[in-house]
Design a protein around this nucleic acid. Structure first.
Lengths: 159, 159
DNA sequence: TGCTTAGAGTTGTCACGTCAACTTCGACGC
DNA sequence: GCGTCGAAGTTGACGTGACAACTCTAAGCA
């Protein structure tokens, strides 16, 4: 009854195939986004988030929260995107940092990309998916998210 | 009956949850590997591959084939790992490039890491998985792999 | 007023991954 | 021999992502 210390071949195969599928899928979507709209997946995520909350400007911390990214990652990403004129940062003159907003260029790009990207997700992901698979994957995804988050919050192993 | 140009909210939620689960899972596994064994997932993959084919040394192209990585990625990875003394490259003195091999340090690290990593995969992935989910995910993963590979080979859109 | 502290944001460093350009070397044909 | 062609491998540039250290400001309090 001892815990096996290694994975069964069958498990290993599932694991490898899963990781591989993931990787290929992400890469294809990335490439399409890059080719058709000139932006990366990370840039797309930022643009979509800004576009959704579009009346106003967002703060870095709101972006980080909404994307579930580390703040430093957001800051680096914004620096790059600012230099490409997809977003702008309102200067914190004498006090308040008003936040991040889309440039006209950023808005144009994201509005085109949303449609194309949705098509690609449908083509690569949903078209190869039966309802049962969708259900299984969704349920499992939520389990993993909960499990990882639980462990992260209950594991102050890092001091 | 027109094609919807955007995803249904339900589809979008599945997609986001799935991407999120993936990302969290990979990050957790990475962190554990880093903390417990001092190596990254990429380094682990290389070490395992070398360890499996362990009598001899491998060539860069064999590694690339076996890992399904681009050759430049392998070369960069080996450069980093060589500087950390996990692998060594046999010099191509006057002719043959004999290939890549594990150092003693590399061998020690990977033999420890294999066990711990398997435990973590089981904990994060398989313990949250019913047989039906496993079946659905495996089937779907293979579909995606085939689909992407088909498209890649049948789409010489790039000139 | 002045001190301290927490949060927001930035920056540096390093590893990872892709693409393109480059070098080298073996194979093949003349 | 000589050219050239392609595969193997390397390198550089660049974007990405994680982590840690740093600055600055706002709050809170003596």
């Amino acid at each position: 009854m001892a815990e096996p210390r290694t994975l069964e071949p069958e498990q290993w195969e599932l694991w490898s195939d899963w990781m591989e599928a993931q990787r290929l899928l992400a890469r294809e979507l990335d490439r399409d986004l890059q080719r058709d709209h000139g932006i990366s997946k990370a840039e797309f995520s930022v643009l979509v988030t800004l576009h959704r909350a579009a009346e106003g400007r967002m703060r870095v911390s709101e972006l980080a929260e909404s994307l579930a990214w580390e703040k430093s990652r957001v800051a680096h990403q914004l620096t790059r995107m600012e230099s490409r004129e997809l977003v702008d940062r309102t200067e914190d003159r004498s006090g308040r940092r008003v936040g991040i907003g889309l440039t006209a260029k950023g808005r144009g790009v994201v509005e085109g990309a949303i449609l194309g990207h949705a098509d690609n997700i449908r083509r690569y992901f949903f078209d190869a998916l039966t309802p049962e698979q969708a259900e299984a994957i969704h349920t499992w995804s939520r389990q993993v998210i909960d499990r990882v988050n639980d462990r992260a919050s209950s594991a102050p192993v890092r001091r």
